[in-house]
Nucleic acid binder design. Structure first.
Length: 890
RNA sequence: GGGCGCGUAGCUCAGUGGGAGAGCACUACGUUGACAUCGUAGGGGUCGCUGGUUCAAUCCCAGCCGCGCCCA
């Protein structure tokens, strides 16, 4: 006997462990099936499960479980990435707090990296453990890590190949420099934040002239590195100055005034100082006019100790330098004006410090070249986005892609396979030995080499994930069988990180796209629509929800809310609601169990005879088809909605109620058929619901088999998905059961409205019933009585005096209320009903009276309207009769 | 400034060229041994505004207003 309530905490961990141990999630288990492959977007090894992960992985799991049941050979490839900066940060912090009080530099590279690995062994499995709690059916036996030997080999192969193809090169360009971590970071790790700042107007005297030009800047300290002043070529205020020079205050350097479109006459003074070594725009302007690149900040963002810098500023932090420079400019009369100014300032998303554009030597990938085939692939539809319009974002980014800086000044990551000779000549090879051999050949003798200290951007290895995890560069069978993979499921904020880079690398090295579909899901926000963030304190922890409501409830909530193209505003109440849904299902199963509804051997739905059973079997097929259709097109919310409605609204609310009299009845044949049908439909529900709520369904699947004459071939996780059989639809049964439901509903409504005590049993009289109605009452009279709390059902030509009347599907039904009836209230009710019917009728008639409508509307629409008019007329007529009789009896 | 998207019941959101929906919240009443994590019933919406296309617009188109996100 099932417990009275379902306790997820008790069941979920046990079931998951069982699935994993039994190898249910293993790829290749069903080697004959068509492969279905998803690579997980690798979470950060330092991470823990947040709501975004919960959504992302729930959707992947739904697809995987669905396809696994449909007979595909599913591989959900799990793993994590090594998250260069984040991981290094964690371990550095640990070092600082451990009492050892050593920095990583004191520790040395080798020892520091060893410590990181040690940390990873102990703490790196957090998120994968949490994914298990969510129920994710990953093939853990194939778990990968971007720093694994195999994946590292892939990284080296890719780097060397691209280098030899000229698609990776070393260059001196401006990068986003993080002065806290002392490394370059990517554009995508930079967050622009609106900051209140100032706009300083500074007068630069023109050489050999009384004139001067006023420039406006938000960063006065960089004037130490100015190498020009730009004005717009059409700006008449300055035309006469172009070609002349100014003398830079404080340093006395002489720099040219140039004409360049970059300068905006509307902004500031229309004249702008150019610091090519410290600003991305200025860098471009500088290149156009051949201006000097003068670096004035060091890696810590302190003013460099150089001859051309006045001694007073050397070594100052950039913000102190600003204060001092502004003060000195003012003292010397060069400061014209200070205005408040709101600017977008770049911050490192991990360090939180202001990012400094810095001129450094870095390794770059020629992303523009790699992007071309990646753009074409989406244009041709080799890969498509769902929802489709995300391709615009992809195209936009890909078509404006910049060289990708892939080197990082970190110790944790794939060290760049480049070695330098004494003269700085570089040898890029997969191994030290190969590099040495190349050097020997180059120099004509053994020559000592030093390896490049830097490591690669974490995303460089993530970009290879769809093929490196399958074994590349080895030509493994798995790789051949499973590349390209099927679908990448990810959030839109990650299109640039994963999708774009996986596309570029996949196409270049595999000559084929990495996945045919990219499903982009929404962001999970809090219930007010705010992005969840630690600083706002509005984070909802998915693990907390799992503890409170169960993983099934959380998963179902996320799926039900995952409508395409809309963010999810998550309210805890919703999760609670779906927990209630799980309980509802549990109790329905409990009812079946108590009534001995067990699977019957050889049960053939098509052979079922009883109308109610035929009806529910048809509905079960309908919902099966709806779920399949929705999941095949990634409409998770529709699939979830369809099952929910069927389970609660159809199976529990009506079917189980309708069969109670049958189960308690005398007809053993009907009883047996009904039990088998109920069990069959419950079974179907468990299957349909399993991708969404794997735990409770598996538990019930096993429980329901106890005592049944049918033995389960497999656990539910591997059970075959049913093929929907449209042939089971039975319109006659639908009409009949629909009539019963309608009658019961109307009587209940009337009772409530007329304030009939809930316990009172009423006498029902059906007025002028035709043969159909009489037959239906003959079949279903008992259950109508039961569901509508009737004492008796009788037939008559006219409604008895003092009864209230209602019209259901063309039949007038009269309820004898005796003394209970409140005639005035009843009259009001009837008048209201008639009013409604008339309103309805008026709309329909207006439409039908319009000649343009009858001339142009499709026939089926016209016919439908005519039918609706008939029905409305009939209802109005009968209601009017009822009212007339009521008035007569007053 | 460029791009994407959103304004539907008190709240959170589905939805559709032809009868406005769900969940939650709210109100009333609770019976019938699956379920009070429940049942039955009820109230509640000029589908942001203005035009246009159409026989017909909440849905398609244009403009406007309000809001959000991404990029510069």
């Amino acid at each position: 006997m099932l417990d009275k309530t379902y306790d997820p905490a008790d069941i979920e961990p046990r079931l998951y462990e069982g699935w994993e141990k039994s190898g249910a999630f293993k790829a290749g288990r069903n080697a004959g099936g068509e492969p279905f492959t998803i690579v997980i977007p690798p979470p950060n090894v330092t991470g823990s499960l947040h709501m975004g992960h919960a959504l992302n992985n729930t959707l992947q799991d739904i697809l995987c479980r669905f396809e696994r049941m449909r007979g595909r050979d599913v591989l959900w490839q799990p793993g994590t990435d090594h998250a260069g900066i984040a991981t290094q940060m964690v371990v550095e912090r640990q070092l600082a707090q451990s009492g050892e009080n050593v920095s990583r530099r004191e520790l040395g590279r080798e020892e520091f990296v060893r410590r990181i690995w040690a940390w990873k062994e102990v703490s790196g499995g957090t998120i994968t453990r949490q994914l298990r709690r969510l129920g994710a059916s990953c093939d853990w036996s194939r778990e990968r890590f971007t720093m694994d030997d195999g994946l590292s080999a892939a990284v080296r192969r890719v780097f060397v190949t691209l280098y030899k193809e000229g698609l990776i090169y070393k260059d001196k360009r401006l990068v986003n420099w993080d002065p806290h971590f002392l490394t370059a970071i990517s554009d995508l790790e930079v967050e622009s934040r609106e900051t209140k700042g100032k706009m300083w107007h500074i007068r630069y005297p023109v050489e050999d002239s009384e004139e001067s030009i006023v420039v406006a800047t938000t960063r006065p300290e960089t004037m130490l590195g100015d190498s020009g002043v730009a004005v717009h070529p059409d700006d008449e205020r300055y035309t006469n100055l172009v070609g002349k020079s100014v003398i830079l205050p404080l340093t006395g350097r002489r720099i040219p005034i140039v004409a360049d479109n970059y300068s905006d006459p509307e902004k500031g003074t229309g004249a702008v100082k150019i610091t090519p070594a410290h600003d991305f725009n200025d860098f471009e302007v500088g290149k156009r006019h051949d201006l000097e690149q003068i670096a004035v900040l060091d890696v810590h963002a302190h003013i460099v100790d150089a001859d051309f810098i006045p001694a007073a500023y050397r070594g100052l932090d950039r913000f102190e330098a600003r204060k001092k420079i502004v003060g000195d400019l003012e003292a010397q009369g060069f400061l014209v004006e200070i205005k408040d100014h709101v600017l977008m300032q770049p911050y490192g998303d991990r360090s939180g410090v202001v990012i400094e554009p810095m001129l450094t030597d870095q390794w770059y990938v020629d992303a523009a070249t790699l992007a071309k085939p990646a753009i074409a692939a989406v244009e041709q539809g080799d890969t498509s986005f769902v929802p489709k319009n995300w391709d615009k974002t992809y195209f936009e980014w890909m078509r404006n892609i910049q060289p990708w800086c892939v080197s990082r000044q970190l110790w944790w990551g794939h060290q760049i396979p480049a070695w330098y000779g004494p003269d700085g000549h570089v040898f890029v090879e997969e191994t030290a030995e190969a590099a040495q051999a190349a050097a020997t050949a180059h120099y004509g003798q053994e020559t000592a080499l030093t390896r490049d200290e830097d490591v690669l951007d974490t995303w460089f290895s993530s970009a290879l994930w769809p093929f490196s995890t399958l074994g590349w560069p080895e030509e493994t069978d798995v790789l051949k069988r499973r590349y390209k993979t099927d679908v990448l499921v990810t959030g839109f904020d990650i299109i640039f990180f994963w999708v774009a880079r996986m596309m570029m690398m996949g196409l270049h090295f595999m000559k084929e796209v990495p996945f045919h579909t990219v499903y982009i899901h929404a962001l999970v926000r809090d219930e007010k629509g705010q992005k969840m963030s630690k600083s706002k304190g509005n984070v909802i922890d998915p693990l907390d929800l799992i503890d409170r409501f169960g993983a099934d409830a959380l998963r179902f909530t996320l799926a039900a809310m995952a409508a395409q193209g809309r963010d999810i505003k998550l309210a805890t109440q919703r999760v609670e609601g779906y927990r209630n849904f799980a309980t509802k299902l549990w109790n329905a199963a409990r009812f079946c169990e108590m009534n001995e509804c067990r699977l019957a051997p050889g049960f053939a739905p098509a052979a079922a005879g009883h109308t109610i059973n035929r009806w529910v079997l048809g509905e079960a097929e309908r919902v099966t088809a709806a779920v399949v259709d929705a999941l095949e097109t990634y409409r998770f919310n529709e699939a979830a909605g369809a099952v929910y409605q069927f389970v609660w609204g159809t199976f529990c609310d009506w079917y189980l109620e309708l069969i109670k009299p049958l189960l308690n009845g005398e007809d053993e044949a009907v009883k047996a058929e009904t039990r088998a049908t109920a069990a069959h439909v419950l079974d179907r529900i468990l299957v349909l619901l399993h991708p969404f709520m794997p735990f409770i369904t598996e538990e019930l699947w096993r429980k329901m088999a106890e005592g049944a004459a049918v033995t389960r071939e497999t656990d539910l996780v591997l059970a075959p998905w049913p093929v929907a059989d449209a042939g089971l639809a039975d319109p006659a049964a639908d009409a009949e059961v629909g009539w019963v439901i309608g009658l019961v509903t109307e009587i209940r409504a009337l009772r409530a409205e007329a304030n009939v005590p809930a316990g009172a049993r009423l006498d029902l009289v059906l007025v002028a019933a035709d043969a159909d109605v009489r037959a239906r009452v003959g079949t279903h009279g008992d259950l109508i009585s039961r569901l509508a709390r009737l004492e008796s059902i009788a037939f008559a030509d006219a409604a008895p005096k003092g009864s209230v009347q209602l019209v259901v599907a063309g039949t007038t039904a009269a309820l004898a209320l005796g003394d209970v009836i409140d005639l005035a209230a009843e009259r009001k009710r009837l008048e209201k009903e008639i009013g409604k019917a008339e309103q309805d009728l008026a709309k329909i008639e207006a439409k039908l009276a319009n000649p343009a409508f009858t001339a142009k509307a499709p026939p089926e629409v016209i016919e439908e309207q005519q039918e609706r008019r008939e029905a409305a007329l009939q209802t109005r007529g009968k209601l009017s009769d009822a009212l007339a009789r009521l008035i007569a009896s007053l």
